[in-house]
């Protein structure tokens, strides 16, 4: 057995590519994009889980949580930002830091460089994370939201740098840092540089701790590999959305390694809560209120 854990048989904790194969993610446009760009007001959207037809107005009022089955539908980074921050309070930071191709990474016929520019055009998103300053119920915060549609929300140099700088700023200002994670793990295309972003963002959490800035980590569907194994698991308070898949190695890698069926609800937020690795599971509708309550108590 000489395979990497993040590896055996290759589908490892970094297997965000295989996540992208799931029907749910093959349409890289998020629900919100569909809402805003293609579906006129008053039309209906099919729930990804129970397949119920839901009206956009209803969903909009319910934070994009299915009214029939409670499925927390995938929403875009900007939607997350407006969900958690006060109206027009978000000011994006460090967006001048742009992706390069340090390894000149190529697979058969495809270059990382091309992949990046293609995605940037297609998604109108420049990287797998957006960070900025905002207020949450009038509390100044630093906010970081990952974008799964951008190479599986994977963490490379830009993601690491933006998150680290935002953490550093929160520590300097002694204000809370709030992160929304959703990621397949470290980004393969930047090799060891991506691995090191795990250490770098963890260094950021250490600075937050020393400064006494609360760090609340929100884990959303799905969060795996190097992101779970770094900053996302280091919040003073760790919150997940219901039924989120959270883990280190990918299920297929584990199955390959242990040669047995995986238990029910394996790597679900519910089982992590039971095993003591989460503080709470919070419905998206109650998230902002819960955050402000926690911060007010911590900073009192």
């Amino acid at each position: 057995m000489q395979n990497n854990i993040d590896s055996p048989d290759g589908q490892n904790n970094n297997d965000y590519e295989s996540w992208l194969d799931r029907p749910k993610y093959t349409n890289v446009k998020t629900l919100e994009d569909r809402t805003e760009t293609r579906i006129p007001q008053g039309t209906w959207v099919k729930c990804e889980n129970c397949l119920s037809q839901l009206s956009i107005e209803q969903l909009e009022k319910n934070s994009y949580v299915c009214l029939k089955c409670d499925e927390h539908l995938t929403i875009s980074t900007d939607k997350w930002i407006s969900l958690l921050s006060d109206k027009n309070s978000f000011k994006e930071l460090f967006s001048q830091i742009k992706t390069s191709d340090p390894l000149e990474f190529k697979t058969a016929g495809n270059s990382y460089k091309d992949k990046i520019s293609l995605l940037q055009k297609k998604l109108q998103v420049d990287e797998a994370v957006k960070v900025g300053r905002a207020t949450l119920n009038d509390i100044p915060i630093l906010l970081s939201v990952m974008e799964f549609s951008f190479i599986g929300g994977s963490m490379g140099s830009v993601v690491g740098e933006r998150i680290f700088l935002a953490m550093k700023m929160a520590a300097d200002k002694k204000i809370p840092f709030i992160s929304v994670a959703r990621s397949g793990g470290a980004r393969m295309h930047e090799g060891i540089l991506s691995l090191m972003q795990m250490a770098k963002t963890s260094a950021g959490t250490s600075m937050l701790s020393k400064a006494g800035s609360p760090f609340i980590s929100i884990i959303t569907q799905p969060t795996m590999g190097g992101v779970t194994a770094s900053f996302a698991s280091l919040g003073d308070i760790i919150i997940a959305e219901p039924r989120t898949q959270i883990g280190f190695a990918g299920p297929r890698v584990i199955q390959e390694a242990v040669k047995q069926k995986l238990p029910k609800n394996f790597q679900s937020a519910e089982s992590l809560l039971e095993n003591g690795f989460l503080d709470m599971i919070v419905s998206r509708n109650n998230l902002k209120q819960t955050l402000s309550q926690i911060i007010n108590i911590l900073k009192n």
Partner: peptide, 27 residues
């Protein structure tokens, strides 16, 4: 080759254990 990808390893917080070391080693 890497941290062990096992059922028990996940249940007992493989990701959390690694993350904690990354953070604590800075102190």
């Amino acid at each position: 080759p890497g941290a062990y990808p096992g059922i028990g390893a996940e249940k007992r917080g493989q990701a959390s254990a690694i993350a904690t070391n990354l953070q604590q080693m800075f102190s």
